[in-house]
Design a binder for these strands. Structure first.
Lengths: 151, 151
DNA sequence: CGGGATCCACGAGGATACTG
DNA sequence: CAGTATCCTCGTGGATCCCG
């Protein structure tokens, strides 16, 4: 653990392997090494994560994942506190990324329906796992947070 | 569940079930209904997701997940383009949430080491799945994005 | 109804300088 | 080395009004 970094690294890896699959650790290291090689560009992954990690994006994907097809105002109502502008911007981005399909019905008054594409649906499955994690561990995090608030 | 949407909803659910497990869809719907009942508070989940979806938070967790134990500047170097201030803020938040452990060695010059807690490591496993998804589908998203750029 | 366009406030986050 | 403190910029995102 002191100055000989070679030994401490291998010790660290052993410790981590107790809780994280070794192959996963390797994968992460490769991503960072790739990022170093290409000078501060954490491959498209970073860009993708940044995009979907947006607050309204996440909620929009969830809503469409949970309810299938929604009109603009239905979606707005489901999310609750999103402004009309931000929902529009969010949906346009999702459409441009091929995650959401937008269908316009040339009626009066106009009707527009949104639904996830196959790509979008495959993402929901991943995000659901993350939500499960947050549901299970949320309380513990809140507990820590309040604990540190008193310091 | 509103006026005449009962039929279209069940049709929609059938369509979705082809690609998403029914139990997952139900879970999402319950979350949104809970959010409605409690007036615009998507339970702690939303708060947690918002917190970890921060750009530097995500990268810090990944770096610590991939390399185990890192000193402040090692971490800064791995991430690459994070400012020293934002890394400090990010690590303080992660520490307050119980995801990262901060160890100070009272030496001169001072040495501070960061590593994930068990809670943090369990999160890495979830995030890795998300990264896998981004790795597989990243190209397709970029493709769509460029396609729409020409419009 | 489902947006587009515009204006503006505010807070995240970068740059710089200093310190235990 | 690992921060803290201060200042300042710039983009996100809300409010408002208008349109097809």
């Amino acid at each position: 653990m002191q100055e000989g970094t070679a030994m401490s690294v291998s010790n660290t890896e052993v410790t981590i392997m107790e809780n994280t699959a070794f192959v996963e650790v390797k994968k992460i290291q490769e991503i960072f090494e790739l990022a170093n090689a290409t000078k501060n560009q954490l491959c498209p992954v970073r860009d993708i994560i940044a995009r979907i990690s947006d607050k309204w994006t996440l909620l929009s994907i969830y809503a469409l994942g949970g309810y299938g097809t929604l009109r603009f105002n239905e979606l707005k109502y489901k999310i609750g506190d999103v402004s009309q502008r931000m929902l529009t911007v969010t949906l346009r981005n999702l459409e441009a990324d091929g995650l959401v399909k937008r269908t316009i019905y040339p009626e009066v008054p106009p009707r527009v329906e949104y639904q996830l594409t196959a790509l979008g649906r495959s993402l929901v499955n991943q995000l659901t796992l993350l939500t499960d994690w947050a549901t299970v561990n949320g309380e513990e995090i809140i507990k820590y947070r309040k604990l540190n608030l008193n310091k």
